[in-house]
Simulated scan of single mutants.
Amino acid sequence: MAPVAAAVTRVLITGFGPFQGVPNNPSFAIVSRLPSTLPNNIEIYTHPSAIPVAYHPTINVLPDLYATAKPDVALHIGVAEGRKYFAVEAGSERGNFDLIRDIDGKNFTDAEGDAAWGNAAARLNTDIDLDSTITKWQTRTADFKWPSILSRQMSVLGALAEQKVDVKASHALSEALGEKGEDVSVAAPDPNDEVRWSDAVGFYLCGFIYYAGMVQKSVQSAAEASPQARVGKRDTVFMHVPLLLTEEEIGVGVNVTTELVQSLVETWRVQKAG
């Protein structure tokens, strides 16, 4: 008897638009190049435009986006300018989104957070098993030919300078967004890994969409309550990508992302069956 095919798993994926120091955000460049389906009965629903790097437009779009896509798994992607690797973040914290103003010159206050998220915990972690996911992801990308992303910091700075970007301000912002210690509750990453886990999502729009997305996924899961539903589960993750500049690098980013999606879905299916 032939094995029963897995049910279709739907994955929502978003990327961000430009902000200070990043006029061409590689997160949306990747999202815009993803296929609509992958092997193993995976459907990809991509938001058709870049999410603005602004708090209120981001939180306003999420309810309709999740309601329309009805994802089993959600993946939000952003850029970490100073990094030289791809990383899935463990979680995000609320209460710090008033530290840095967005591209509209606004922040997101604690009072707005209380109104939007009620009594949700100060910190939320994804409910998807990261140890399993990262192990699969590293195996799937083990034979990748990595472009020179990971050793061209000076050329990145030169490119930014040519675009008349305030490099000093850009890097100061980058440091403010995500310099936190790694969470030892997950196996420590090897510093040589091109794909890995992290716990430094930061307090800007990357951390914001991750926290808001986990809350929204919990709401969606609870609304779908049935014997088969993972009620209230935060099946949402966030990936940081390096500052990819060339088409070759964006192409690698697309391949890395599709392998992450496969890894996430495999892990999610095992968790759901369990």
Score class of each variant (00 low, 15 high):
L124K: 11
G82T: 12
K136W: 00
V265G: 03
A187Y: 04
R230T: 08
R140I: 00
F208M: 09
I44Y: 02
W117R: 05
A222S: 13
H47N: 09
A6F: 09
S36F: 02
V31L: 04
T133S: 11
Y204D: 05
S148T: 15
Q163P: 01
A74Q: 07
E259N: 15
V53G: 11
L173H: 10
S49Y: 13
Q228T: 14
E247P: 12
R196S: 11
F208Y: 14
L264H: 08
S27Q: 04
S174Y: 01
N107W: 07
T258I: 15
A222H: 06
N125S: 10
V4F: 10
I134P: 02
P39V: 08
Y204C: 05
N24W: 00
F203N: 13
T267V: 12
K168M: 08
D102A: 06
E179V: 15
R94D: 04
V186M: 05
N107P: 00
K272P: 02
D131E: 14
T267L: 02
T258D: 03
I30V: 14
A188P: 07
T236F: 03
D235A: 15
Q228R: 13
A54Q: 11
S185H: 09
A200Y: 06
E43S: 14
N255G: 01
I44A: 05
G91S: 07
N119K: 14
P52S: 13
T109M: 10
S49N: 12
A54V: 03
P63N: 05
S155Q: 14
A74T: 15
D183R: 10
S148A: 15
A116I: 04
N60F: 03
V241W: 01
Y45V: 15
S221N: 12
T257E: 01
G158I: 13
R83Q: 07
A176R: 14
Q163H: 09
F16E: 06
P189K: 03
D72P: 09
E182D: 14
A6T: 09
A200P: 00
T246F: 07
A111W: 01
W268T: 08
I100P: 00
V165M: 13
Q153I: 05
D131R: 05
N255V: 01
R83S: 08
F28C: 01
K84A: 11
A200C: 10
P35H: 05
S151I: 10
D190R: 03
I100A: 03
D104C: 10
N40W: 02
Y210E: 12
F19D: 06
L62C: 09
T267A: 05
A120I: 00
T141A: 04
Q220W: 00
A80W: 03
K70F: 00
S92E: 04
K106H: 10
R196I: 06
A67I: 03
H76G: 13
V231P: 02
A50M: 05
A80Q: 03
G207K: 12
Q262N: 12
I134S: 01
L99D: 10
A69C: 08
E224H: 07
V241G: 02
E182W: 06
A200T: 15
V61N: 05
E248Y: 07
E162W: 08
L62N: 09
R94M: 11
L157Q: 10
P57A: 08
E249G: 08
M214S: 09
L243G: 01
L65E: 07
G274P: 00
N24I: 07
A176I: 09
